[in-house]
Each structure stands twice: as C-alpha cells, then as structure tokens.
Amino acid sequence: MPESPVGNDIEIKNISKAFGEFAALKDVSLNVKRGERVVVCGPSGSGKSTLIRCINGLESHEEGSITVDGILLNHKTKSLEQIRSRVGMVFQQFNLFPHLTVLENITLGPIRSKKVTQEQANVRAMGYLERVKIPEQAYKYPRQLSGGQQQRVAIARSLCMEPKILLFDEPTSALDPEMISEVLEVMIELAETGMTMICVTHEMGFARRVADKMVFMDQGRIVEMAPPTKFFDSPDTDRCKTFLKQILHH
C-alpha cells in the first residue's frame, strides 16, 4: 500500500457496500484534506450515513479501500483501533451512557483507552465542557439534560479523545427546532479551530457557512461534489437541483 500523500486525512477509493440485496454504496471515492470541512447531504437511503460509518469501521466496506491518516482500514483489530483513536463520531441519537454522569461519560474513553489519570481526565473534560458551554452540568445524568445539551455533551465526549477527524451523523436531526442552533454554534466554533470534519446534515445554512466542499449523494453514489458557492448557485445535475429546491423551500 503506498503511503498517503501528505495533506490527505481521508482517502476513500472506489468503495462499495451492500446490505443483502440493497446496494448502499456503489463505487464511492472521496478525498478529504487535513483541516477540510465536508458536508454530505442527500435524500434518505442515499448512503450518506453508511459512507461516514465506513470511515471509522462501524460498517465494513466490501470493495475498494479507505485510508485514514495514512492507515489502511482493514478488518484487522489493530488498524481498526488505530483509526478509532484518531476519528471521533457524533451520533443522531447522542448515544450517551445513561448510567454515567456527564463527566464520567466524557472521561471514560480517555481513562480506559488513552491511559490518562482520573485527575487529568477530569481537568481535560471540564475544559471541553466549557467549550460546549455547559460546565455547570458536569455532575448531572444525561436524562436530566435537554436534547441540545445532550448532543453538546456527546461532542465534548468525542473531543476529549483529541481526535484528528470528527464525523457528524445528522447531529441535529433528533433535536427540537429551538435547540438546533446551540449545537450548530458549537460545531461552527469547532470548524474555526481547523478540525477535519465530515458532517452529514441538512442544515444548509450551516453548510454554506463552514463547508469547504459539498457532497451530494443519491442511491449510493456521489452525484455532485463542489465548493458551496458553486453547489448552491449552479449545481450540475438535475437530481441535485430538485433536492436543493425541496430542502431550501421549507
């Protein structure tokens, strides 16, 4: 396997993936440079979530190759572990641990897999809770928080692992409308720090503001890939035009 050229954090080459009869990804290729912010959108079932779940090995791809930070992702435990420690993920359903406090949720990863001491982890976690603006919630349980607060805890939990790349899988889709902006705000600030980010989202205002590259997927393929200005103002394909029209109409 040739070394990944410097500057590319993620290289996806011709990957395919099927769930039984259903082809979720068909021959998808995507490169993401260091510090680049990519927003992936498309109708439901288009494969966008599957694509980013392949990047940290939550789903296995069948053909093609994925290289993350120079490490080839295969089904060996070692490469999976190396990639996981570099890639954080924020889920649509938050997936916080309900039996642990906010602080314990955030420190569990660093303490167990990065061998950080309890005190160091606590200090670090409080720092990230400040960044997502909820340090006062540290000793509460997830279910005592609002959806927006829970998602911000989930972001802090990912950040505390100090990943190079952060994946967002529809982070605002499960939120009440008035809580979406507080999560987007945190994500915008994060984008400004130069973190490599791939976001699956339909928040087009957010996309316009932070994205370096827009990716539009349909039926398991990347149909359109362009910088946001071109993407929103003059997309090449009709499929993308219809989609944008529908989504921006509301």
């Binding site: 993920m89 997936n95 990863g109």
Partner: peptide, 18 residues
C-alpha cells in the same frame, strides 16, 4: 441494550472488555 451504546463505545476507542 441499544446498538448505539456499542457504537458510542467503539467511537471512543473502548475495547470489547471495557
């Protein structure tokens, strides 16, 4: 237990035992 709990553990690099 919800599948999301495994995925979240996976995403913060916990091994099977942890």
């Amino acid at each position: 237990i919800d599948k999301g709990q495994y995925e979240a553990s996976h995403s913060i690099s916990l091994n099977y035992r942890d």
